[in-house]
Simulated assay, not measured.
Amino acid sequence: MDRACFAHPLFAAFAAYQDVMAAADWPSIDALDQRLALPGKQLVEQDDALLADGLHYERRIAQGRIATRPRNWHDLFNALVWARHPAIKHALNARQCAELVDASAVGRNRTQAVLTQFDETGVIVRVRDASLLHAWDRHDWSALFVQGAERWRSGAIAVSAVFGHALMEQALLPSRLLVGKCVVVQGEDDAQAVEQVAQAISRADLLNDPLELRPLPLMGIPGWHPDQDVLFYRQVEYFRPARDGREYPAPAR
């Protein structure tokens, strides 16, 4: 795996953890726990002894222990997201635990599904003006990314946070064309947008149904892929048309 991938904009907010991501050797779970020093949480190795407690993964987190597999990118990125966006992680965990009426139940309800989708592939996008979403609403990707390129460069529309640790894992393969599942906030400040999302999740104002999330082909964002020519944006299997009748929620304010 080429560690040059960590220079991609998707990892920009995790620059403080370059020493962890680009290290020649994997850190032990104890070393990673000490490096991140998560308030109120401890990274613990997921082994048979840990799993013998019979607790659901989310309930164990609520008790302060995050089960983490050694030498595993997915779990490493999960730990980094806990370090970078703890308020959202705490909010998601509290909501998931509230949904666990019966830990033995098979399958997820729609709220559990959207909470998991956002945890795995979530992205927070901020817009200054809600009218910027019109092209996105109709999946007019050329208007959003090509004609609208200057809006991305100026910050009129921006990725405030890449939250999904599965997205980060997929980004280890430079050829992957990633799709984020997005919550949109209207405002001027990225940090404030992230805080608003954390509060809204805690209040259950957000993430009650998967249809709340907007799909965004992330490699279409100007500067996020090296080959953004006309043919690139014509890849219908990636830049998919909108489904008939599909409507997206207005941005949070």
Rank of each mutant, 00 (worst) to 15 (best):
P241E: 11
R71V: 09
A191G: 14
A105C: 10
L173E: 14
R240Y: 00
L38N: 05
L167C: 04
E150C: 05
M1G: 11
S154W: 03
A171H: 04
P226F: 12
H134M: 08
Q196I: 13
P241R: 01
G155W: 06
P226Y: 12
T68M: 06
L133Q: 06
G40R: 09
G187S: 08
Q42L: 12
F6N: 01
Q34L: 11
M168E: 03
W73S: 09
P251Y: 11
D119G: 08
V127M: 00
R128I: 03
G64D: 07
G180E: 05
I124Q: 03
G245Q: 09
E58G: 02
F163Y: 15
M21W: 01
L100I: 15
M219T: 11
F145A: 03
L76N: 05
P251F: 12
Y233E: 01
D189V: 13
Q147V: 11
V185C: 01
D190T: 11
N72A: 04
R153P: 00
P251A: 09
A130N: 09
Q147K: 13
R126A: 05
M21T: 04
G122Y: 03
A200D: 04
K89C: 11
Q63K: 15
A204Y: 05
R65H: 11
A130V: 14
P210I: 08
R108V: 00
A158F: 01
A161P: 08
E58S: 07
Q228G: 10
Q199S: 15
R151G: 09
L218M: 11
G164E: 01
L100D: 04
S175A: 14
A200I: 08
Q228N: 08
A105V: 13
V127H: 01
W224D: 03
L144D: 00
A52Y: 07
P174W: 02
L177T: 03
R128V: 08
A113L: 13
A161V: 13
S28Y: 12
D19W: 07
A4H: 12
V20G: 02
R108W: 08
A94Y: 02
L43S: 04
K181F: 04
D47H: 14
L207E: 00
L76C: 14
I66V: 15
D190Y: 09
H8N: 14
L172E: 09
G54D: 08
D102V: 07
Q96W: 10
F163W: 06
C5P: 01
A23L: 06
D227E: 13
D190H: 12
E58I: 03
A22L: 01
A31T: 13
